[in-house]
């Protein structure tokens, strides 16, 4: 299976330097990025990462009588390529703050309480239909150390391995109807409104759910299309 990668519409991707995000002007290139024609090296990639890393289940809201505090949610995600074809067997890494807006990370010791029953991270593999599921709590918002009124809205981080090196993606997912979405400097660094909208999960009206949780659906599109087979 060969994959092709086309250049992206710049407006669908975040600007690299963001006003009010003081690290960005120090850590992103000043020189123009170098254009290259992808070769086999970039159009192959690690498709067997699952054999190299430790998988962690997709249920991170606690077990038995040790349940994480917060709004229980069931997140159903599908991973597709740019043709809309499912990307099965993809390793997905997930991390998020707890219901109070605190991460399990030494960098986060600031304001919100830890939750010993909240796991904070999942590492799963998509099934043949490109799907994976999470049972978690809705992450809380948190203030950014810039201390100028910037709060991150509730969001979940994803890192994904696609079919080729250039499909590798790190992204964030947001929740619908959150007032903080409109002023978030990271979400709004993406100029195209439709591209921003596609970062927001879809709320599914309550129905019978195996986890008895609020359900959200989301879609992630990795770069790459199936190459047209060469004529013999």
């Amino acid at each position: 299976m060969k994959t092709t990668i086309q250049p992206r519409d710049e407006r669908t991707q975040p600007s690299r330097i963001i006003e009010g995000y003081p690290q960005t002007p120090l850590r992103n290139p000043k020189q123009p990025l170098v254009k290259r024609a992808p070769t086999l090296s970039e159009l192959t990639g690690p498709v067997e990462v699952a054999k190299r890393v430790k998988l962690l289940g997709g249920d991170i809201a606690g077990h038995g009588d040790k349940q994480a505090i917060g709004q229980l949610i069931h997140l159903k995600v599908r991973v597709l390529d740019e043709d809309g074809a499912p990307v099965g067997g993809a390793v997905v890494e997930v991390w998020q703050a707890n219901g109070a807006g605190r991460y399990i990370h030494p960098n986060d010791d600031e304001h919100a309480p830890a939750d010993v029953n909240f796991y904070g991270a999942a590492r799963v593999v998509t099934d043949e239909s490109g799907a994976f599921q999470l049972r978690t709590v809705k992450p809380g918002a948190y203030p950014v150390p810039t201390r100028d009124g910037w709060w991150r809205p509730p969001h979940i981080h994803f890192s994904l391995f696609g079919k080729v090196w250039l499909s590798r993606l790190v992204t964030q997912m947001y929740f619908p109807g959150e007032p903080l979405n409109a002023q978030d400097r990271i979400l709004n660094a993406v100029p195209d409104a439709a591209a921003r909208e596609s970062l927001v999960a879809r709320y599914v009206p309550p129905a019978a759910d195996p986890y008895n949780a609020l359900v959200f659906e989301h879609q992630i599109v990795l770069r790459g299309r199936a190459a047209t087979p060469e004529q013999p």
Binding site: R8, D9, T12, Q13, P14, R52, V53, K54, L80, D81, E82, D83, G84, E93, W95, A97, Y103, I104, H105, P106, N107, D108, G120, A121, R123, H157, S159, L169, V170, T171, Q172, I186, V190, A194, A195, R196, S198, L199, I220, V221, L222, R223
Partner: peptide, 22 residues
């Protein structure tokens, strides 16, 4: 389809994701 927008990995990427021996 339009590929999903990237975002920073942020300051809270779990240390456990750098598996021993990776």
């Amino acid at each position: 389809m339009i590929s999903t927008a990237e975002a920073t990995i942020g300051p809270f990427f779990p240390p456990r994701y750098v598996d021993q021996g990776a």
